[in-house]
């Protein structure tokens, strides 16, 4: 039977699930771009919990934090994709295991 209303804690659990999915993808994927997208997924999950807490406390400061996270994510995506382009130009590969010349 469905409950009558959704408590904020459900939103937080959803956020935790999405965050864990992002971490799992980060661990098991090998394509650099996909790994980068998993980081974006984690950021999104954290944003959801910020907005949920903003609703719980009835203050919009949490929403402003989400706003800042979005701006920083945009900057991060621009620089990160530029780095990926450079890596691809030098190594002709997007496998994360191939970028390990410092190790050997």
């Amino acid at each position: 039977m469905l409950p009558n209303a959704v408590p904020v804690s459900w939103y937080l659990v959803l956020s935790a699930i999405l965050f864990s999915l992002g971490v799992a993808g980060f661990l098991i994927r090998r394509n650099i771009i996909t790994v980068f997208m998993c980081i974006e997924l984690m950021l999104n999950a954290v944003n959801l919990s910020f907005v949920a807490f903003s609703y719980e406390l009835k203050k919009i400061d949490g929403q402003l934090f989400t706003f800042f996270v979005m701006v920083v994510a945009a900057a991060e995506a621009a620089v990160g994709l530029a780095i990926i382009l450079t890596i691809f130009r030098h190594r002709m590969s997007l496998e994360i295991d191939d970028v390990s010349s410092l190790k050997n």
Partner: peptide
């Protein structure tokens, strides 16, 4: 973390 959230915030505001 799910257990923690559901136990620490048992009567969080319901979203409408």
């Amino acid at each position: 973390i799910a257990n923690f959230i559901l136990r620490e915030l048992p009567n969080s505001a319901s979203v409408q």
